[in-house]
Amino acid sequence: MQGQRGAGCFGILLRKIGKPMLNGLEAAFFYLFAFILIGAAFMVISARNPVHSVLYLILTFFNAAGLFLLMGAEFLAMILLVVYVGAVAVLFLFVVMMLDVDFAELKSGALQYAPVGALVGLILAAELIVVLGGYAFAPQLAGGVAAPTPDIAVRHNTAALGDILYTDYIFFFQIAGLVLLVAMIGAIVLTLRHKEGVKRQSIPAQVARTPATAIEVKKVETGKGI
């Protein structure tokens, strides 16, 4: 498999890193989006009200989409808005509002986890440095990875992703579909129960009703009510 073709957004990222400096309007927008993104992300974890957290999360997504646009990945930017803001964040809002969770109590112990969290964060950072350091030692790979994201003038971004997903990787796409089918069957097998005595809507039965079976005429006597 031509591994380099699957590079996608990572390739774009690497190309950007390769550029010397951002300048002018591009730089201004980059820093605008980046600072709002980090600020909003911080507010997600520090806001007292969970609904505010989700709203800040939406702000974070919008700014991340802006960063993607700056990189020329307009399809990913739109997908981020449609999928994450349109579906995932709304789902979060539903969950936050429908489940009666006492978030203040949940957060009360947060400080006591801080040292472990910091440790995990440090280890993660160290690992990232090691991995990215490896790239610096093997520069020929970066060239191989970044090459195939086609120039936007040659091939449209969306079409290029479609090429990879539906032509080169069609085999994996189909297997992923089967994995999801198994997940669906599993969810139904493990949770669906047919209860007796549950009233369900039956459209044929509704359509088949006639005035004779549906309407009952009552003779109401004057002054008595039903």
């Binding site: 498999m1 591994g3 380099q4 699957g6 991995v131 490896g134 790239y135 093997a138 790979l141 191989g144 990875v145």
Partner: peptide, 12 residues
Amino acid sequence: VYGYTGNTGFEA
């Protein structure tokens, strides 16, 4: 492995 070889295919 992908990061250090640039490939996912076994032969590659």
